[in-house]
Simulated scan of single mutants.
Amino acid sequence: MGKWTIAEVKELLSHKQLTEKEVEELRNDTRKGVQKLLFQYEQQLRKKNTMLLKYQQMMEFEKRQYRLGNHFVAGIDEAGRGPLAGPVVAGCVVLHKDYYLEGLNDSKQLSKEKRESFFEQIATDALAYGTGIVTNEEIDRYNIFQATKMAMSRALKKLDMTPDHVLIDAVKLEGLPCSSESLIKGDQRSVSIAAASVIAKVTRDRMMQDLHEEFPMYDFKSNQGYGTKSHMEALEQFGPSPYHRRSFSPVAAAIKC
């Protein structure tokens, strides 16, 4: 028998990181309940270490700028290039040099609950953040690529500071007040861009929820404007709403019907 009850072991493992000596004592405890708890603890510890390592790898672009003497590095990403309805939204975030948010990644790889939680955390902790919104009418006027660049530029301008350097997901922007760098799949390679992707995605999802209240037949709260089967059926039945992108071919086809 060990010196702790199983209930005490459970409490111990859930509230602190054990010393090597304490872990060794638990390894030598022959009770099945203790071994099960220890296995779960070590599994969770491995997961946390893996997330920390990934986060450190995703900090390499920021660290390079810090080594060059740049103190404020912004990340920019967008949400909503592909949908048939709604705006395209960009997020821009400047994080503290030593900031750590366990599990931060490309917003598309996070659950809705985790995105919402991270959004609040990032908005609270960031040195600065901003969002840029380009409407569906502007998308139709300028095309989706130019609209994406406009949203990103607007997000950058919303910052209450001027960064020294900007990391941008997959797009090159001109006329910036600082140096910049475009990264393919940047939301998976840069912490700052990943944070911006969360800001952009959650902001847009909330906007689509509001549009759903106005036009529930399209089910925007579930599809966020993407061309799902039910969305396409509603588009064929009801025609486009004022928030549909008429320059996108499925919407244009629905107008002709």
Rank of each mutant, 00 (worst) to 15 (best):
W4D: 15
E8R: 13
E11C: 04
Q17N: 03
T19M: 10
E20H: 04
E24C: 01
R27L: 10
N28I: 00
T30D: 15
Q35G: 03
F39K: 12
Q40A: 15
K48L: 14
T50M: 07
Y55P: 06
E60K: 14
Q65F: 04
N70T: 00
H71Y: 04
V73G: 07
E78I: 14
A79K: 03
G80L: 00
A85Y: 09
G86T: 08
P87K: 00
V94E: 06
L95D: 09
L95C: 12
Y99L: 11
Y100F: 13
G103T: 00
G103A: 01
E113P: 02
S117Y: 04
Q121G: 00
A123L: 07
A123M: 05
D125R: 11
A126E: 06
A128C: 11
A128E: 03
Y129L: 07
T135L: 08
N136E: 15
N136V: 07
E137L: 03
A147G: 11
A151N: 01
S153I: 02
S153D: 14
S153P: 07
A155Q: 08
L159S: 15
D164V: 02
H165G: 01
H165I: 10
D169V: 01
V171H: 03
L173Y: 12
E174Y: 13
P177C: 15
P177I: 11
P177Q: 12
S179V: 04
E181V: 00
L183E: 02
S192R: 05
I193D: 11
A195G: 12
A195S: 09
A196E: 00
V202W: 02
R204T: 02
L211M: 12
F215G: 01
P216I: 15
K221I: 13
G225H: 14
G227T: 12
K229V: 11
K229H: 09
A234P: 08
E236K: 14
G239Q: 13
S241T: 13
R246W: 06
S249W: 09
V251A: 05
K256D: 05
